[in-house]
Nucleic acid binder design. Sequence first.
DNA 1: CGTAGACTTGACGGCACTCAAACAAGGTGG
DNA 2: CCACCTTGTTTGAGTGCCGTCAAGTCTACG
Lengths: 246, 246
Amino acid sequence: MALASLTHLQPLFKRLQVRDQITSDEMTALAATAGAIVDVPANTDMAPEGSRPGFSTLVVEGFAIRYNLLGDGRRQITAIHVPGDFIDLPSFLLKSMDHSVAALSDCRVMTYSHQSLLDITARWPHLSRMLWLLTLMEAAIHRQWLVTMGRFSALQRMAHLVCELYVRLETVGKAHNGRFNLPMTHVGLADTLGLSPVHVNRILGELRSMRLIRWDTPEVEILDWAGLRRVAEFDDSYLNLRNEPR
Amino acid sequence: MALASLTHLQPLFKRLQVRDQITSDEMTALAATAGAIVDVPANTDMAPEGSRPGFSTLVVEGFAIRYNLLGDGRRQITAIHVPGDFIDLPSFLLKSMDHSVAALSDCRVMTYSHQSLLDITARWPHLSRMLWLLTLMEAAIHRQWLVTMGRFSALQRMAHLVCELYVRLETVGKAHNGRFNLPMTHVGLADTLGLSPVHVNRILGELRSMRLIRWDTPEVEILDWAGLRRVAEFDDSYLNLRNEPR
DNA sequence: CGTAGACTTGACGGCACTCAAACAAGGTGG
DNA sequence: CCACCTTGTTTGAGTGCCGTCAAGTCTACG
């Protein structure tokens, strides 16, 4: 079980090691306090709005999203989570879910009871700072999304999302050579970018005709990284990829 | 100095006590590790993009904003900070600023060196969870803003911002009877809501003619809370106002 | 009294939305 | 094995919210 856990924790360790040193004791502690490994089928709510989960979950494999529903049924996705993301760390301290978390694709997740996270904060100050860091990195992504939503055109928003996902997936070894999988429909992209599905389709066509990307759902290929980056005004500093003591 | 600090920490304590119990030992610890109290004049950058501040700051009095500048000079404000907000807690762990923080009005702030915050995480697990909670609450506000930016009309966005600021300011005793001060021009509001200043003006006129608010800069008065709330689809649960053990 | 900054109002244009319909692909049951 | 259905993608036509440009008003302040 412990060995299996360490394997499953690889994406998280990769993410953390990009930012700081993690001791093997800390790795062992994270593996020892892990709860069950659960497979969640695509399009399943893991933590619905209004619920009070007693545990947080770490994505091992697959994609998850965080979203809000409006009164009239419209949806806004506020985060896309990839392997190594500790989703629902917010629920650890916020307690009650003010939004929903769902599996986008089939997911494998590990659970961490809030009690075990409490123990970590009491006994492993550096490790708990690293978990805190994860939530701060998520907030940094939120801020960048706010910038793109407020000030970017639809084309720029889409280009920026592709750049961001590529870098984040590459960090955990899920993207190579400009290619990655994104199991998301036009409706999902529209709900992420604050657009309509029809317009998402037109924008993707434009990015294709500009020879910036190829997109055979679910595979995305970046054909011209420099060009895409320029269109998106993408600067990865908000992703905090530098390694330094925290 | 310690006594003076406790006075200055009142807005922060009010915010925290809405969410959880804070012991007097923890209050004393926060007061003891506080650094200098600094007055910052309006429209001054406190933490410019690219800088690496060695301390975080707590707003004691006044308003501050977090913003990004785009290549062509456009601006997007990603957060409005009020007294009791621990701004730049992100800088404690993210280290390098990927955006700027500025005083919106004349501000009084307290500084906390990153070293002293490190000491707090090592010695006061519950208190550090409360600081972590503050960053999670900020992320929750970011998510709500993403929803309004992505799916709300300009009118709804403005109404929602007024509702949010009223509740946040009331929590720290800076709003009463539907009234509060917001030292922000139409340009600032436009950069917050992702609109143009011209349209902000029109929207404010509409909210006025709907008898929902009065707005004699800088004083804002909510004339019809239920009506404003309805327009904004405002639900305060994302602000986490419930008191429970964290 | 002149100037600067903020607010206000009008005209016009464009990006993105809605509505609508056709096309493609995968899954299911008869 | 194929008709059928469901889900997703694509394309066109028309509309509207909000942006830009421009000019004018109001207030504070030196």
